[in-house]
Amino acid sequence: MSRFSRHRDRWLDKRIPRAKSVVLSQRSIFILPTRMGVAFLIVLGLILLAAINYQNSLAYAMCFLLGSVYAVAILHTWRNLAGLRLQSGRTHPIFAGEQAHPWVRLESRSRAHQAVALGWQRAAMTLDDVPARGACEIELALQSERRGWLRPERLRVESRFPLGLFVAWSWVDLDIAVLVYPRPLEGEAPTVQGGEGDEEGARVVGVGADDYRGLVAWQRGDSLQRLHWKAYSRGRGLLVKDFAALAGSDLLLSFDALGGDPEARLSLLCHLVLAASDAQQRFTLQLPGRTLGPGEGAEHQERCLQALALHGAPAERAAA
């Protein structure tokens, strides 16, 4: 990031502070002629030259009329953004490498706003109309690369309506934040790390057939993966294979027990958390300085994935 853009961002942060919902006003809208607007002025210059050289009043009048249209277009283009409310919604967490789809709601408080474009890059803007006193929702795409909070740069909202001679734009920070979990990496779960004096659990990972205890009746919430299809086909009803959930033999997923690059360890742990959740296994996640669980269910999984995502990051957003 260059020094200029840092300065610009600081200036923008003061001028258009970050907020979930922003109403565009004179403080936040900028306007400049487009390339087409400059070309239009050149055409007007040519018409003016013709008017002067031929002493032709009508050519003068046409030049002035179009020049006035040019000036009026400034107001119209500006007005097309002014008063528009932008609001970001909650975005579901994703895994690193996936595309997040944050959406932004554009809401008109009085007049219609036509052809409003929204996007992070000028090349890929999404265009939509906001009806008068109505709203529209625009889904954006955001590529994630690393785990943690994905906070995109300021969003550009622009409009060239009605004539394309001017572009009015604003850079808004809609406080879009997407939680990015580590990319789940399948890998061999190491068995007991023997000889290290690690006495905390019997197994690092232990999802296996060994724990198979028998068949129990299916209940809502049981994973379909554990359905005993053979029994079903024999007409014994929906039965699930019940795995051992012996007290004390909970799965322990420990960061320290894994080897290799920390990011790779987090990725593997992510995969294991997902696998354990799928298998409806109780598990404990142990990260340096933090232990989650034992627990099971979607909420536990979410908390674990969040911890993995934010591992090592400053705890600023824990509340969110």
Partner: peptide, 20 residues
């Protein structure tokens, strides 16, 4: 747009200096 441009146009038409 044209209607809104008319007043400005009239001002320009009357006052824009005419040269040979």
């Amino acid at each position: 747009l044209l209607l809104q441009a008319v007043p400005l146009m009239l001002v320009l038409f009357v006052f824009f200096p005419r040269v040979g």
